[in-house]
Nucleic acid binder design. Structure first.
Length: 206
DNA sequence: TGCCAGGCCCTCTTTAGGGCCTT
């Protein structure tokens, strides 16, 4: 078993809210198939505005680097192709989905792909973790990392490893044979107290 | 021009407030 396929995505942006003018400055995405990463996509994007000193410091992405980067719309067209019809995963997916939808809208495209959130899943599966920031979870679960944080491709890869680790833990702990995207989506929505019984019940269905 | 988020989730809740996550 293990035909799980999804694109794990991460954006670096000029701020927190596309509704107030913030734009994307970098995207990283990895195609996960079965239990491994099989393809990668990464690009900086010129947002047409200066990014703050905070963002330069937080991401290591400077205004100089962005001055020679391709326009956002060009990268979005490539990203649209990379994503295709795959399901999507992100850490705190509400954030990345808002930016993805806002930038897609600017190229007259509307997302139909479903999202699932690794943060919501980790809060249920690893309630004992110190916190549920991506960086903390990577260390807590001893996941593969190159030590880079707050860059899009590195964060997408770490999120992918976290996602695969959660799938493996569900299989090992509950004896669920296969963990499709739909089941992971349900994990992010089931009431926290009901997760244990929910997964025990699923062990007989998958 | 400047405004500056939003969804989840807990609790001393539901006629609400605040911490957690993302940049």
């Amino acid at each position: 078993m293990g035909n799980f396929t999804a694109v794990v995505i991460d954006f670096e942006t000029t701020g927190l809210s596309p509704g107030y003018g913030d734009r994307t400055i970098e995207v990283g995405a990895v195609l996960v198939s079965g239990n491994r990463i099989v393809d990668r996509f990464q690009s900086l994007m010129n947002p047409g505005m200066r990014v703050s000193g905070f963002i330069e410091e937080y991401t290591g992405i400077t205004n100089t680097m962005l001055s020679t980067a391709p326009a956002i719309k060009e990268v979005m067209a490539q990203l649209k192709s990379f994503i295709g019809q795959h399901h999507l995963v992100a850490h705190n997916a509400s954030f990345d989905s808002r930016f993805l939808d806002a930038e897609f809208k600017r190229i007259d495209h509307r997302r139909t792909n479903e999202f699932a959130c690794s943060m919501l899943a980790s809060r249920r599966l690893y309630p004992e973790a110190p916190n549920h920031r991506l960086e903390t979870l990577v260390h807590y679960k001893k996941l593969k990392t190159d030590g880079v944080h707050h860059r899009a491709l590195a964060d997408a890869e770490m999120t992918a490893h976290l996602w695969l680790n959660m799938i493996a833990d569900i299989k090992a702990t509950y004896g669920v044979r296969d963990v499709p995207f739909k089941l992971m989506q349900q994990v992010t929505k089931v009431p926290k107290k009901g997760l244990h019984d929910f997964l025990l019940k699923k062990a007989t269905q998958y």
